[in-house]
Computed example of a mutant assay.
Amino acid sequence: EVSRFLAAFGDRLVNRASTTWRGLDDAARAAGPAALLAAHPTLMKRPVIDRDGVLTLGWTAEVKPLILK
C-alpha cells in the first residue's frame, strides 16, 4: 500500500512536522521518501483515506466534506 500512496502523493507523504523528522540528521533527511518511510514508518503523514479508489491525505477542511457525505 505504501507504494500506492507514494505514487499518489510523492514526498508529501512524509510528515516533516513530526518529532521523528525533527530527530533525523541531515543525511537521513536527504533520503528519498520510500527509503525514509521504510526506515521510519512513523514519518508517514496520516490519515490516508481510500474511498472508492480515491485517495486523500490528511484530515483537512477540503477532505472532510468528501468523506462525510
Rank of each mutant, 00 (worst) to 15 (best):
P65E: 03
P47I: 07
E62Y: 10
G32D: 11
A27G: 11
A34N: 07
R4C: 01
T19N: 12
V2M: 13
D52H: 12
S18N: 14
W21M: 12
V54G: 08
E1F: 09
A30H: 04
A31I: 03
F5L: 07
F5W: 11
W21K: 08
W59M: 03
N15T: 00
H40F: 14
L13E: 07
V54D: 04
A39I: 01
D11E: 12
A27I: 09
A39K: 13
I67Y: 04
A61H: 09
R29Y: 09
R4Y: 09
F9G: 06
R51K: 07
G58W: 10
R16Y: 09
K64H: 13
P41Q: 06
D50H: 13
H40K: 09
L6R: 08
L68E: 15
R4W: 00
A35L: 15
A39F: 05
A28C: 02
R46G: 03
P41D: 07
H40I: 05
D11Y: 06
F9I: 02
E62C: 12
L43Y: 09
P41T: 05
A7S: 04
G53A: 08
A35G: 14
P65N: 04
A31W: 01
M44L: 11
A7K: 08
T60G: 05
D52A: 15
P33F: 08
A30E: 06
P65F: 11
A30N: 01
L6K: 06
K64M: 13
L57H: 00
M44Q: 14
R12Q: 07
T20A: 09
T42N: 11
A34C: 01
D26A: 15
V54T: 13
A28Q: 04
E1D: 12
V2Y: 12
M44E: 14
D50L: 14
F9C: 04
V14K: 10
L24Q: 01
D11S: 07
R16S: 10
S3H: 08
